[in-house]
Nucleic acid binder design. Structure first.
Lengths: 337, 337
DNA sequence: ATGAAAGCGCTAACAC
DNA sequence: GTGTTAGCGCTTTCAT
């Protein structure tokens, strides 16, 4: 059994309140007594029990983070941001993985509440409306992070996808590309962020007036999905005289690039490819992927910053916080000769 | 304020002990009373406070995990294994990042103890002897995971690096390679696992009798370090007539491959490259990297399994647990013509 | 089968 | 400046 505050008090010949005062610096204690207590603490290696402390102070210094899968590099980056900023305010991270399951997300929200976390950040990849009700019944700050879907009126932090998509398309146009294929798995889902991204792409193409809107639909947003549509893309390229591809996610672009390498299509000589996200691997690959940098680390950092603020009763910006994005111009996109 | 067990008791017209009994199924309760209590719980949405529970039961159902950086994909994989298996036993993960700092590792061990975690898994990349003393003063199960250094007598789980390195070298030899360069950042550090890996490489080369041991030293084990030694490697290749490179870590191999691509050296036509680890990106790159698969997910899974066992007072295998590895034969290594 | 009461380790009035 | 005491929300004897 580890030593308790009682043991310290007894050995130091003082009351437990005095011990509490010295370890918390909460009230003045005479220098001699303070030293005595500190010595005993050192001697027996006493460490305050944070659980007992939490029970009375109502402060657990714990933030619950529910992720889809920490194995996704962009999620890992977000968690890094959360963890690192959280630490600045003495908060620790309770990590749970939902693996994309609705019920699991819900269950973890409950569990984290029972564990008395002071706030929750949900990093999801699905649309789960029930999460709303769940949170309404609890009274702790939370932030909702989702790269694919938006949940209305939910505090979140991201980038302006419409602008980002618009800018990237314009960049491609500025390179001399006329017909640009937009690749997505969008399937008319109500809350999909793809709506915005597609709108941005369309706007740029419309304004340009010289090219067509061309869409190619993948099964999903993973590398394999990108690889699978490689053949379709090649056909579309012939039919529409397309010279560039704008993928709604880096993963799709990477899968596609691999398909091209495997089939002797040169990037960017034969075709240019742009992605969306700037996941870690995007700048490691050859050619390096031109893409939109979503600041994952910062998104996590701002998310927890918001929670900490709310916990301190400071004013918080309502709803969505948009962070700046960047167009990363790299070798996968070239000028049209 | 959330409802407490008292509220439930009052509303149900029973004592708090009875409520406790129904929520824990710890002792028989008459069906009518049970139903009444359950109804009230449902009605007011009562959720037991796990912190209060922990204070009396001494079970926090929390495992502390200290990582170097969750942004490293292999670490993320380990954490996945820990989290997923932990969940099977109702354990949650308290995640802390040390970013490779000795003092931070130590501080987190203390912090986690104060938070009453039931076990600790330390995923480190440095050699930190003080961790030993730290753990000796606490009395909770722990596992030490480190891809670079070994800590004697510490419970750990990994692969047999000597065997793995030996097998990979032999595989390269079987492909017809005579002179194989071994790339490492090994600098004579006492507890480096590189010792074992180098020994395995040497053994295979010695037994082969037809090639030379050739070493190339990088500054570190990261992608950039691999890229930086590209020029040296090319020189060594000329001088020693080397046809294959065995990198002590995938990251080095990837950096090197990028250097080659950037300098028009073809892999595997001009030179073969093998890595060590099988990090996520190894099988995404083109050519896909031949490497040794360290089962990161399983390593994490076994680590927490060990802790849970110890917590249940089941017998645990002492010290090191070695998991099987695999030689992943992919396109970065080819037969010598 | 149920309730009263002690106590987990700590903080925070409240006295003195 | 220091000690006494009442909880925090819960589990767990111990009676009944």
């Amino acid at each position: 059994m580890p030593a308790t505050i009682k043991d310290v008090a007894k050995m130091a010949g003082v009351s437990i309140s005095t011990v509490s005062r010295v370890i918390n610096d909460s009230k003045p204690v005479s220098p001699e007594v303070r030293k005595k207590v500190l010595d005993i603490i050192e001697e027996i290696g006493y460490k305050p029990n944070e659980v007992a402390r939490t029970l009375v102070t109502k402060k657990s210094f714990l933030i619950g983070v529910i992720v889809t899968d920490i194995g996704n590099s962009y999620i890992a980056q977000m968690v890094r941001g959360i963890e690192e900023v959280g630490k600045m305010y003495n908060y620790d991270i309770l990590l749970c993985s939902s693996y994309g399951d609705k019920e699991t997300e819900l269950k973890f929200i409950q569990l984290l509440n029972r564990k008395q976390v002071e706030g929750i950040i949900l990093i999801s990849e699905i649309f789960n409306e029930e999460v709303k009700k769940q949170f309404e019944s609890y009274d702790i700050p939370f932030v909702y992070l989702n790269r694919y879907y938006s949940m209305e009126e939910f505090p979140t932090v991201s980038i302006n996808d419409y602008d980002a998509s618009y800018e990237m398309t314009n960049y491609l146009i500025s390179l001399g590309h006329k017909n640009i294929i937009y690749v997505t798995a969008y399937n008319d889902e109500e809350n999909s962020l793809e709506k915005l991204k597609i709108a941005g792409y369309k706007k740029a193409v419309d304004e340009f007036e010289q090219g067509d809107e061309i869409f190619c639909y993948s099964k999903g947003y993973n590398i394999e999905d990108g690889y699978e549509i490689g053949k379709d893309i090649l056909n579309i390229r012939e039919n529409y005289d397309a010279t560039a591809i704008f993928c709604s996610h880096d993963e799709l672009a990477i899968g596609l690039m691999n398909y091209f390498i495997d089939n002797n299509v040169r990037v960017p000589e034969d075709i240019s490819i742009a992605g969306y996200g700037d996941i870690k691997i995007a700048s490691i690959l050859r050619p390096r992927l031109t893409t939109i940098k979503e600041p994952y680390y910062d998104i996590g950092a701002v998310a927890i910053r918001r929670i900490v603020k709310e916990l301190k009763d400071e004013s918080v910006d309502e709803g969505r916080i948009n962070l700046p994005f960047q167009i990363k111009k790299r070798e996968s996109c070239a000028k049209v000769e």
